[in-house]
Amino acid sequence: MNTVSVTFTINGEKETRQVRTDMTLLKFIRETLLLTGTKEGCGEGECGACTVIMNGKAVHSCMVLAAEIDGADIQTVESLAGSGELDKLQLKFMEHGAVQCGFCTPGMLMTAKALLNSNPNPTKAQIKEAIAGNLCRCTGYKQIIAAIQDSSRGGRK
């Protein structure tokens, strides 16, 4: 069993761990770091439930090897309210009814967060394009899009 040592930042905290080379970042986050907010929906980059922000970019954690995160900055859904205060996105998701079963929600939030970080004022079309890789079977997306739009700089306070 091959392992490598990785030093990375997870939700603002620096850590060093030995990781198995065949382990995905998703499995590492869930089973080693025990951050179970990040979900597995398909394991092959088709559903977006496992989305985390890696070095500022939304990525599927099931499509990244844990070995690849040496030097990386990783943010999971647990980081959003990490300061003790809910992120605006979280508040708006609740306010707009953008959550139903909740399984896609963490990944959806992280994609939305990455979007607003890179584009604080996205159009509806840009929001749709950004979250097209996050499948939701419950909501029909309408309330999710409204929540993201309302969280953006142009959205109402």
Partner: peptide, 8 residues
């Protein structure tokens, strides 16, 4: 159940 779900 919203809060439990948006916080993971």
């Amino acid at each position: 159940d919203g809060l439990a779900k948006v916080t993971g």
